[in-house]
């Protein structure tokens, strides 16, 4: 009898393990999606926002170059928030603008306006992994992401990076880009449980090696609802180059219109 029980256990054990792993996997995917969905809706109702940015490009030896730009975002619950990034400095690239219309079903529409030739150029999917104006941010990094752009997996909960003093807990999730032209194989994100602030993202290249690390600091609450980091950094761990974005004059609900985010408004 004992022997029969043992045999039965030996026979059923692999199925139990596989089933249990599958169930854990399903739970991990479900929880990852749930956290990402909460992140996606955290700013619902913000209407529009705008800010001035200093983009500080640092090379491997620490030398710095500064560029000034503005960013405007228009809430668009239908297809994803539209964004317009315009360069103010240096003067020879002043007016250069990147307009992004995200899409939930297909690839995002992206246009680059080049004032020196008065020309608006459509950016192809393949270009999106390219560096944005010489920075460590790619065109892909500069777009607002939709929930549908990734598949998710929950990894663990741990103390938030850089916030060890106040016991803040972060959910750590991995997201896998759906777009095959993404420059990344996956991204690991640290999201604070209470207020859904993104503290850190690790970007892995197509060979699955760690490529870049994004960190956000100096969070401030605007309009009693919207948390924004005033300083973010993207560091390329393979080249040791980094780009820092320092935000100022952050405003919400200033009445931006659809017209300002229309392709034909570029350069006008």
């Amino acid at each position: 009898m004992k022997s029969i029980k043992l045999r039965l256990m030996l026979v059923t054990f692999p199925f139990v393990v596989v089933a249990s792993n599958a169930s854990a996997e399903q739970n991990s995917v479900g929880k990852g999606y749930e956290i990402a969905a909460l992140l996606d809706t955290r700013d619902a109702g913000f209407e529009d926002s705008s800010a001035k940015l200093s983009m500080i490009l640092k090379n491997g030896q620490g030398a710095q170059t500064v560029r000034e730009l503005q960013i405007k975002i228009l809430e668009n619950t239908d297809q994803g928030d539209k964004s317009l990034i315009t360069f103010d400095f240096p003067a020879d690239i002043k007016g250069t603008a990147l307009l992004t219309h995200p899409s939930r079903e297909g690839t995002d529409d992206q246009w680059l306006f080049l004032p020196t030739v008065d020309r608006t150029k459509r950016i192809s999917s393949r270009n999106k992994s390219g560096a944005f104006m010489g920075s460590e941010f790619s065109f892909e990094d500069m777009t607002n992401k939709n929930l549908e752009d990734y598949n998710y997996r929950f990894l663990r909960t741990e103390a938030c990076p850089n916030k060890n003093m106040d016991n803040s807990k972060c959910d750590v999730i991995t997201r896998f880009p759906v777009d095959k032209h993404s420059g990344y194989s996956k991204q690991i994100m640290w999201i604070e449980q209470d207020n859904k602030q993104i503290h850190k993202i690790e970007y892995y290249d197509r060979k699955d090696s760690l490529l870049k690390v994004f960190t956000a600091t100096d969070f401030k609450l605007y309009n009693d609802k919207y948390w924004r980091a005033n300083v973010v950094e993207m560091r390329n761990v393979q080249t040791n180059k980094a780009t820092v974005l320092e935000y100022s004059s952050i405003q919400f609900g200033s009445g931006l219109t659809k017209r300002e985010f229309h392709r034909s408004s570029l350069g006008k």
């Binding site: 030739v117 008065d118 020309r119 608006t120 219109t257 017209r259 034909s264 408004s265």
Partner: peptide, 18 residues
């Protein structure tokens, strides 16, 4: 000078178009 609202843009003067 360009005048723009959600429906129409009117322009006049000198410009370079591409």
């Amino acid at each position: 000078v360009y005048f723009s609202n959600s429906k129409i843009t009117l322009g006049a003067g000198v410009d370079t178009f591409f």
